[in-house]
């Protein structure tokens, strides 16, 4: 059992949830999402994010629109779809339950 693996798996397990949460308040493009996640140390390297975003988009939880940027490449701004919002609400609930359950178990 590799501790680093376990840690990474824990982090990555909640990544989808976090991405959806970040996008709940505001439409963001990849680098901004990255900033949020990196600040919270949920993400060590950026590469992990892109397959995830595509997966979420393919699951129709996210959609994006192109916006030109000054001096850089055009940006993909991601936004939650209706399905994504429902999904997020469910995840919120699950997370709270899970959180409580974990706390209860670990504090005994």
């Amino acid at each position: 059992m590799n501790i680093e693996n376990t840690k990474a798996q824990m982090r990555k397990g909640v990544l989808e949830y976090c991405i959806l949460s970040v996008l709940n308040n505001k439409d963001l493009y990849a680098s901004e999402i990255l900033e949020h996640l990196k600040q919270a140390k949920l993400l060590v390297v950026e590469g992990t994010l892109y397959p995830l975003l595509t997966r979420l988009k393919n699951a129709e939880l996210l959609q994006y629109r192109w916006e030109e940027s000054t001096g850089g490449p055009p940006r993909k701004y991601y936004t939650l779809t209706d399905l994504g919002k429902k999904f997020l609400a469910e995840l919120d609930q699950t997370w709270n339950e899970l959180n409580q359950a974990v706390q209860q178990v670990t504090q005994q």
């Binding site: 990474a8 990555k12 060590v44 390297v45 950026e46 590469g47 992990t48 397959p51 995830l52």
Partner: peptide, 11 residues
Amino acid sequence: VMGEPEDYRVD
């Protein structure tokens, strides 16, 4: 910054 290709895969 982007990570090694394995990082994309572990995901």
